[in-house]
Design a protein around this nucleic acid. Structure first.
Lengths: 206, 206
DNA sequence: GTCTATACTGAGATAGAC
DNA sequence: GTCTATCTCAGTATAGAC
């Protein structure tokens, strides 16, 4: 069968997103995809490489859109603000989520399973580097260390938000919700990035 | 051997924290602890229950300290602020981390492996409920929905921060760093909680 | 080149002897 | 309480059919 490879990828994307990477066995994937176990290893080499291919298929458009938006936001006539830069970075993922919720759920899952550092490095790095550079421009008053910590906080909040939502949203869950949750997140993070740097009073105590 | 149980718990705490829960096999634990494989199942029933016991041992003091600080902050003469409430919630964990970095690293690891929702529910819920109630008091202007989303963002940032640090910190990693990273986080989150609520402009587009 | 059948190693879990 | 032996199922590897 010529599309064995695609069938494996589609099924893996769905199952990894639903149940998580670790909790999905290759045997579940082959059962649902109707292929042989060894076909996975023939086409992908290992479960980990399979995951990589699943991500790779979908990451490219997100990266392109991020780059384009960052370019636009940096060159555009409107003033460069924290909000706009954050939006340029987040909206592409939210838009993908709108059309393909599975993929973003998968991203969240990967983070929840501690697999994101590697995946980010392999598939999202260039756009992230660009984002950091532009972000730095709108936050020149922060020390490099404080800046990196705040980026760290942001990543945590973002990943957690892509992954899931507060319990109460079961009720209010409506279409368009990914975009609106990004709006909330951008507002929150902007407040965080602009917050005054704490005076570090009690270092000498320790 | 009478302290088989304790030896298993100590070793499990160390290994789970170092390598993660999934990556640590029961066979590694028994090798390092010098006990038999079946002893784990005898004393704890399963790998998951073992993890629960590891967490339970250390969670109690954190919960007590959180409750005490929230009480103090709510009843105290100083004005109730977002910063103070956040601190009351975060500092106990940071202090534990200072003396016992393994435990907090373990907490971070659990989050990174997607095990936290269950653990939180089983071991940290009362203090969290109290925290939410006090937090709500200092943020009366937020809608319930916006409030819960911001708590959601906070949890993501917090967990990610407990878990790890930006790459550059390898160099600057110094004693007392847990407390100072909490100071940074509290400042960031306070800015986020106080940020103006976004006008939700483009919902009709979708 | 693609895929199937099957075997290998190591995981968590369990029964039953001591 | 503890340990040996064993079970099931995971990911992986390979030999060989087409």
């Amino acid at each position: 069968m010529i599309d064995t490879r695609e069938r494996i990828l589609d099924t893996a994307e769905a199952l990894f997103g639903e149940r998580g990477y670790a909790a999905t066995s290759l045997r579940q994937i082959i059962a649902e995809a109707g292929v042989n176990l060894a076909a996975i290893h023939y086409h992908f080499g290992s479960k980990e490489h399979l995951l990589d291919e699943v991500v790779l298929r979908k990451a490219a458009p997100v990266n392109q859109e991020r780059m384009a938006r960052l370019e636009r936001v940096e060159a555009g006539g409107e003033p460069l603000t924290v909000e706009r830069v954050l939006e340029a970075f987040m909206v592409p993922m939210a838009e993908t989520a709108e059309q393909n919720p599975q993929f973003v759920r998968l991203m969240g899952r990967m983070h929840a399973e501690g697999l994101m550092p590697g995946i980010v490095e392999r598939h999202f790095q260039p756009a992230i580097g660009r984002f950091l550079a532009v972000m730095r421009k709108v936050l020149p008053e922060l020390s490099e260390e404080e800046f990196l910590w705040r980026i760290h906080f942001m990543i945590g909040a973002m990943a957690h938000t892509m992954c899931g939502a507060p319990d109460h949203t079961r009720v209010a869950g409506a279409p368009g919700s990914f975009r609106t949750r990004i709006d909330r997140l951008v507002a929150f993070l902007s407040g965080g990035f602009r917050a005054p740097v704490p005076r570090r009073q009690e270092i000498e105590v320790e």
